[in-house]
Design a protein around this nucleic acid. Structure first.
Length: 739
DNA sequence: CTTACCTGCATATAGACAGCATGTC
DNA sequence: CTATATGCAGGTAAG
């Protein structure tokens, strides 16, 4: 089917043709045949990179031209900005695009003036909870990665959000995009959508299992040269010598860096001077943005053409690795599953070095087929690679057969709703009441009766859990119920409304409220621990070496904690120690302990510190608001801590740190030099500041506080002319020259 | 004396969304 | 409490 045959405006047709898209891929054509452009609901269960985005775009553009408005729901913030950037290319057609995620937000009212709004599922839920008016104007909803309905953590939110949206806009077109799953038909039926089910990919994918010095694909074999004793390394070296790149998936961070280290020593031998030179620049960039151990190790690996990637990396390191791989300078990324579902980073060959993953309840467990398919699907860059290959590794013949059968030739599992537990439902039962989707028990059951869970499983078990939730919420004064009426009436209290809008788990809300009421002497640690004891906070794992250290801390600070569980209740106490350990990390963070030191004290990465601080800041904000509502005195203390967690700094730096371009480190430098306040800083001499923080930063700071720089700021000296950016610029120039 | 390889034992275990109000090194 | 890879300490055989 040709683009120009489609029932869409002429200028849009030309736009696609100019960008080289003349014909639809088969699954896209099938979607059009199923009424994509006529506002019909659709579930497309097709592989990654088979043109899901274009499919959604066509429908959105068509709808917008008919006066509609589109909402594009994604599971990850990174994905949101990726889509946002893509859709902004539609600006020439007068299409306005907005983005809304927790960390990056165009203002709510203004957001509604856009034609396309990209948001995470949680943010969408939050917007619904806040009664955002433009939600009712949405005519097209795209739900990306809808198979995440199956996720224990985040599936329920996605499910309830979709349910709410369908109820709010019954005539709205829903386009759901999914990986290929077992019960796609069932999901489609729930959405009242037609189904496009296809395995078609623009680049062929060969899935195989390595065993006996060869990759065994169904029906053929590919011998791999033995240059190293490690098979995965051999596969990597083979790919590179054929001009491709590799993505290696590992089950733990340690394995991930471990493999990068060993493989890099072999990979380096295959690289030429030019590439090594550029890699060295990149490695320096890594070293300059962090002096942690991981930064050094990562830099050393990158010098040899290999990188590792996991959530412990700080964001600049992550970005360098991703960009370096896209530039085809980094040849191998050894990664945890971060890269399996997230960014668009395909490679010629994907090696799944470890198909098992540790689970605290069941030990090492084989990953689901769906997850395997997601990783394997990363193989093959469209238009760049002749084909993609994914490889599992087997040690014995029995394992080889098993892998072939259970992964390569297996179909993905069915999607199962995870809504049916009290933990998952509590927050949604509350928000349903707060937002008026249900004002009595009957309406509540009706609403929950239209979820995927109810569609798929028995509703009586759901009703029981919902009643438990209502009871919990009533007990904690978030919901009022009148049991004398026949359908028991349900309404929310001020507390309930606040908890719903703060987007915290009602159990977190209850714990914080309870803690605030009980607390006697409150200091920083008291509130930090309170926040760390909520189910919304991810606690640190207790290692055996931590035990005495954390326990000693508890002993010497026993007055700081609102409640210490009995030491002989081993499970409770151990859990408590984990909370305290987390609070200790945050305490170091707000006391300006350098990030490198924190990573060592707690055996975490820089990325972990920021993630924990981020969550703590959000929960501390909730604490502030809850304290205000309760009219207890700790709200200003909590508010102060909220700011300190945001910047990771002591109270005396709060004024300096609010200046753009000044963070915890620079603020401390300025403070020690006598610039203890904004007023002092305004009186500062440029030359003095320049010596302190460097000429560029100094000029930047002064202009940000409204001081005009009198002295001439020397043009940036060519010290850094070899930075990555300039290098990449050059690269692009030569590339376009070549074209 | 160095290197390569083996054995045994202890050890640790993926990821990431949200509020609010604007910008880290 | 589940299972596995890793890395280190200590040992041994080969060079």
């Amino acid at each position: 089917m040709l683009i120009k045959e489609l029932d869409i405006p002429e200028d849009i047709i030309r736009f696609y043709e100019d960008s080289g898209i003349k014909e639809l891929y088969p699954p896209q054509a099938e979607a059009v045949d199923n009424g994509l452009l006529e506002g019909k609901n659709l579930l497309a269960a097709i592989p990654t990179a088979s043109g899901k985005t274009l499919l959604a775009e066509l429908a959105m553009l068509k709808a917008i031209r008919n006066g509609g408005k589109a909402l594009y729901i994604v599971p990850l913030r990174a994905l949101a900005s990726e889509k946002f950037d893509r859709f902004r290319e539609l600006a020439p057609f007068g299409i306005k695009v907005g983005i809304s995620t927790g960390d990056f937000d165009s203002r709510d009212e203004w957001l509604g003036s856009n034609d396309i709004i990209v948001a995470t599922s949680e943010k969408t839920d939050s917007l619904l909870r806040n009664g955002t008016s433009w939600m009712e104007e949405i005519t097209t909803i795209v739900v990306d990665e809808v198979h995440l309905l199956d996720s224990k953590n985040r599936g329920p939110t996605l499910e309830v959000t979709i349910t709410k949206l369908m109820r709010l806009n019954p005539d709205c077109q829903i386009i759901a995009l999914s990986a290929t799953v077992g019960n796609a038909r069932e999901m489609a039926d729930w959405l009242d959508a037609s189904l496009v089910l296809s395995e078609w990919r623009p680049t062929d994918l060969h899935e195989g299992v390595f065993f006996g010095e060869a990759i065994n694909f169904p029906g053929k074999q590919k011998k791999i040269g033995r240059r190293d004793k490690d098979n995965a390394t051999n596969l990597v070296l083979d790919t590179i010598s054929e001009g491709g790149q590799c993505l290696v998936f590992e089950s733990s961070r340690r394995n991930c860096t471990g493999f990068a280290k060993t493989a890099s020593n072999k990979v380096v031998k295959l690289l030429d001077r030019e590439v090594l030179g550029k890699l060295a620049v990149m490695a320096e960039e890594v070293e300059s943005t962090g002096e942690t151990d991981t930064a050094k190790v990562l830099a050393n690996c990158i010098r040899k053409g290999v990188a590792f990637h996991h959530a412990g990396l700080n964001s600049s390191h992550r970005k360098i690795v991703e960009d370096g791989f896209r530039q085809n300078l980094i040849k191998v990324i050894s990664s945890t599953p971060t890269l399996a579902a997230g960014l668009n980073l395909p490679a010629r060959r994907v090696i799944i070095r470890n198909y098992r993953r540790f689970d605290a309840n069941f030990g090492m467990q084989p990953i689901p087929v769906l997850e395997y398919k997601q990783m394997a699907g990363r193989a093959g860059r469209p238009h760049l690679d002749p084909y993609g290959e994914s490889v599992l590794l087997a040690k014995e013949y029995a394992e080889f057969e098993q892998l072939l059968e259970n992964y390569v030739e297996a179909d993905a599992e069915d999607i199962w709703s995870k809504l049916g537990t009290e933990n998952a439902l509590r927050t949604h039962v509350l928000s349903t009441i707060v937002n008026g989707f249900a004002s009595d028990r009957k309406q509540m059951m009706e609403f929950m009766g239209s979820t995927f869970f109810a569609f798929q499983q028995d509703t009586w078990s759901l009703e029981e859990v919902i009643d438990d939730c209502i009871e919990y919420l009533a007990e904690h004064e978030m919901v009022l119920m009148n049991e004398t009426l026949d359908p028991v009436s349900l309404s929310s209290t001020q507390l309930g409304k606040l908890v719903s809008m703060l987007y915290i788990d009602p159990m977190s809300g209850a714990k914080i409220v309870d803690g605030l009421k009980k607390a006697v002497n409150v200091n920083d640690m008291t509130l930090l621990h309170l926040v760390c004891s909520t189910p919304d906070m991810r606690q640190l794992y207790m290692r055996s070496a931590d035990y005495t250290r954390v326990n000693d801390f508890v002993m010497s600070h026993s007055d700081d904690f609102i409640e210490i569980p009995n030491e002989f209740k081993a499970i409770d106490y151990e859990w408590f120690l984990g909370e305290v350990k987390t609070a200790m990390l945050l305490d170091e963070w707000i006391r300006e302990i350098p990030a490198d030191d924190i990573t060592q004290h707690f055996n975490v990465g820089e990325g972990d510190i920021h993630a924990l601080a981020d969550t703590a800041e959000w929960l501390m904000h909730a604490t502030t608001k809850l304290a205000e509502l309760l009219k207890v005195e700790h709200s200003s203390h909590a508010h102060g801590l909220e700011k300190r967690i945001h910047y990771g700094a002591s109270p005396e730096l709060m004024q300096l740190v609010s200046i753009r371009g000044v963070g915890r480190v620079r603020a401390r430098k300025l403070y020690e030099a006598g610039f203890v306040s904004l007023a002092e800083l305004k009186k500062a001499e440029y030359s003095v500041l320049s010596k302190l923080v460097g000429p560029k930063v100094a000029a930047n700071i002064l202009s940000n506080i409204g001081v005009r720089v009198k002295e001439k700021v020397g043009k940036s000296t060519p010290i850094n002319s070899n930075t990555l950016d300039t290098l990449l610029d050059k690269e692009q120039k030569t590339f376009s020259d070549f074209q």
